[in-house]
Amino acid sequence: MSYFLTQVLNGLSYGLVLSLIAAGFAIVFTSTGVLNFAHGSIVLLGAYLVAVLHPTIGFWPAMLVALFGAALVGVLINALLVRNLADPTPGAAAILMLGVDIVLLTELTRRIGNQVLPVGAPWGASVVRFGEIALPTGRVVAAGVTVVAFAALWYLFSRTDLGVGMRAAAADGPTASLMGIRLSRTAATGWALAGVLAAVAGVFLTSFPSPGVAPTVALSAFAAIPAWVLGGFDSVPGAVVGGLLIGLTSALVTGYEGDLEHFLGTGFGEVAPYVVMIVVLLVRPSGLLGSKEAVRV
């Protein structure tokens, strides 16, 4: 029983980290309509900055730099590339982001090489015990930070002019623009927010129990795509639900791999999120909490 509970808690805490990344996808998508395939490399960039800077300036300042760096890269990608697309369709933007991802990821991979860089998180490799259940402290901190981050997002989107403006811009860009909302500013805010969330997620993905920053982190950020799709393309609460579901699914499938091996094969934990995603897309093409797309003629 305690094994099961450990798996569940592991899955939920991992799912919360995934939901940070998934929320980044959702925010960029609602504010600019871009499917941000470079999000994985921004996650890696955030973690990389912390790993490189923390020996000299300490963990917390390094974290601050990483948050700003990731946000800045997002804002620049939007301002310099996405807004200047020759043919501004969602498909072209998605492929553009694949190009950005290739460049960013290749350069980061080259810099990291074969090393695994530790991020030097202050909680280290310690473990928190609840009775029989042991959880890495990093995961507990991650869960706490994620809850705080989502509370802040909720406050931003429902209580501040900026957030309400972003929602208005997402709902109807031209009308929002006529009401005096600057679309360039809401778009930049969206990209910056996504960058901040990505950097936070990057640090949690690379601290204990993970060994450190390696290029594969960008790939594990891909696992957040099913979470995002599952929750709904334009929904931040959906990202949380999706993240938790995917985290739970992969933790349980991986945890009980021994029992499932005979008919699912080894390593099914990595594939399970995508299977869940395709099934959900078949039943609900706009995700669990996403708004149904209206067809305008």
Binding site: P226, V229, F233, Y274, L281, L282
Partner: peptide, 27 residues
């Protein structure tokens, strides 16, 4: 799936195919 989805939605669903096929190839 392809008939129900379009554009980037379909792109994401097909992304899953790559991982599923890879899993089958390995197993």
């Amino acid at each position: 799936v392809a008939g129900r989805l379009r554009g980037i939605y379909l792109g994401l669903a097909t992304l899953g195919l790559v991982f599923i096929v890879r899993h089958l190839l390995l197993n």
